[in-house]
């Protein structure tokens, strides 16, 4: 694997008053990698991710995303990443085409680019007949696939997925992961948080956060071996059981 580093954090910390949400986390993510960012509710995943995508200032520590500093170069970071959140991230009262136009425009694609990329996206998802329908009329699984496709429309260096498959059936989740693999093969680094442990198995490497610190970081196989576990679920439970805080 190409070992070019695209995310590097060094003792990255976020405090809210006395509460340390994220406590000196240091890790690296490589280009084209699918990096699973796991942790129980309240472990600090979301806070850490917010610092990485440039919408929350760290209290201390350093981080570079796609080579850009999280303190000073948030504008450049935003230009070079894609983001899809746990909540649905498209406009439901706009059509599929209009959503593509909107987000393409926001990320500075030209009209021609939007047209060609948008058409191939619609074709790939098999949504030709729905292209002019409102997004609200689509089933959830399709919406999520569409949201992911739009998040990587501008070919970001890294795409951040915050629990992208919440509430989606297993078949669609499998298809969703096929799309993630395809993106990774195209050189897009995927940084994903999830609650589904079977999905953790799909990642190249996984980190598990407990109480604001990273307790473990390795490939799923490596983790299972180290903790002598059959599945990622067992690994996760073993580590997360020691957590002091929860929601």
């Amino acid at each position: 694997m190409n070992k070019e580093i695209v995310i590097k954090t060094d003792k990255l910390t976020k405090r809210f008053g006395d509460f340390i949400a994220v406590n000196e986390i240091s890790f690296e993510v490589y280009k084209g990698e699918i990096f699973g960012f796991l942790g129980a509710n309240g472990a600090g995943k979301t806070t850490a991710m917010k610092m990485l995508i440039g919408i929350s200032k760290p209290s201390s520590g350093n981080a570079a995303i796609a080579g850009y500093d999280v303190y000073k170069q948030t504008e450049l970071i935003k230009r070079n990443i894609g983001y899809m959140s746990q909540k649905f991230s498209l406009y439901e009262d706009l059509t599929i085409k209009e959503n593509i136009q909107l987000f393409g425009g926001i990320y500075g694609l030209s009209d021609d680019q939007i047209k060609t990329k948008g058409e191939s996206l619609i074709e790939k998802l098999g949504l030709q007949d729905e292209a002019d329908k409102l997004v609200v009329s689509l089933p959830l699984g399709w919406k999520q696939k569409l949201a992911f496709s739009i998040a990587i429309l501008h070919q970001p260096k890294i795409v951040f997925l915050d629990e992208p498959t919440g509430g989606v059936d297993p078949i669609t989740r499998r298809q969703f992961w096929d799309m993630i693999y395809e993106a990774a093969d195209n050189g897009i680094t995927v940084f994903v948080t999830t609650h589904y442990m079977d999905e953790a198995e799909y990642c190249h490497r996984v980190s598990i956060m407990v109480d604001g610190v990273i307790q473990a970081l390795d490939s799923p196989e490596g983790l299972k071996m180290r903790y002598n576990a059959q599945s990622m679920e067992e690994v996760f439970l073993m580590l997360a059981r020691g957590a002091k805080r929860s929601d």
Partner: peptide
Amino acid sequence: ELGTMEILLVSPM
């Protein structure tokens, strides 16, 4: 409320 604001804040907009 719909969560789209977050998407916009993460975007270069």
